[in-house]
Simulated assay, not measured.
Amino acid sequence: MRWEQKSATTQRRFHVWVRRFQVLVSLMLSSQTKDQVTGAAMQKLRAHGCTVENLLATSDEKLGELIYPVGFWRNKVKYLKQTSAVLQRDFGGDIPNSVEGLVRLPGVGPKMAHLAMDIAWNQVSGIGVDTHVHRISNRLGWFRRPTKNPEETRKALEEWLPRELWSEINWLLVGFGQQVCLPVSPLCSSCLNQNICPSAHQSSPVKRPKAGSPRSPKSLPFKTKTEPGQELALNDETIKQEPRPETVSYMRPRRKNKCPL
C-alpha cells in the first residue's frame, strides 16, 4: 500500500514537472513566432513526447521537423537540447524556481523567465515585457521619458503599476498589439483609447533602407533609366530623365497630294 501511494505521488510530481517544462518550451518557441505556429509546434511536440528525456533522445533533424517553421528554428533546436541537458543534470528534470536560475538557461531571457515564474510556479516575480508591451506602453505615454528596450520598459512599468496587475498586463497588451495597436498602420480609428492616446492618428514611422542596401539612394547609380516623364530624386536633387531612344517616334513628312487636274 505504501509503495502504491509512493508511486502515485511520484507520478503526480512527474506530471507537474512535465507541465512546467512544457511551459518553458512553449515560451522558448514563441520568440519571434506567431501564436498559431507556436501552438502547432507544441501540439507536435506533445504527441512526440515533450519531456526532458525524450528531447535529449531525439535527433536534431527530427526535433527540427517537429518545431518547424517557428522563427529561428535551427537555433531553438540547439537551445532546447542544451536547456534539457542542464535541467536533467542540475535540476532533476524540473525547471528552476527563480528568475536568476531561469535566465541562466540557454535561449531564456528575462521576459520568458518572468512569464515562466507566473505560469509554471504561480509566482509573480515581475512583468513579462515583449515587443508589444514595449511599443504600446511608449505609444500611450506611460513614462516620463521613452524607454529604449523591453528590459528598461519592465523596470519603468514596475515603478508605478500596482503589483496585482503585473500578471495580466502582458496578456492584455499582447492581444491588443496583435489586433488593434499594430506595429505598422495601427487601427486608431477603431481603438477605444484614441481620445486619450497621444500617438493616436499619427502615421507609422517609415523604415529607411540601410546604407548600401539595393534600395538605398547612395547605392543607386547617378544615371538610371526611367520611363518618359518620370523623375528620380538623388541626393536631394531632382533629375529629369530623357526619354528612351526607342520611345521617340520619327514621323516622315507627308507627301503633298498632287492635284488630279
Rank of each mutant, 00 (worst) to 15 (best):
H114T: 06
D236C: 12
N122F: 12
I67A: 07
N149Y: 05
T226L: 10
L24S: 06
W3T: 15
R19T: 09
E168C: 13
V206D: 08
L187R: 05
V77D: 07
D94N: 11
M42R: 00
L56P: 13
A47Q: 12
T131C: 00
E231Y: 01
M28E: 03
K223M: 13
V124M: 04
L55A: 04
S203I: 05
L140V: 05
P228D: 14
K210A: 14
E231Q: 09
V77S: 08
S199C: 02
I95M: 04
F14I: 12
T147F: 11
R2N: 14
N54R: 15
D60Q: 15
A200E: 01
Q202H: 10
W3R: 13
R104V: 01
K240N: 04
R163N: 06
L220A: 13
F72D: 08
V206N: 01
C188W: 00
P150Y: 01
I169R: 01
L157F: 14
E237R: 11
M42H: 01
S216Y: 11
Q241S: 12
P221L: 07
M1T: 14
G107R: 10
K218G: 14
G39H: 03
I136L: 04
W3V: 08
R145S: 15
E164R: 10
L165N: 05
L102A: 06
N149D: 09
L234F: 10
G229L: 05
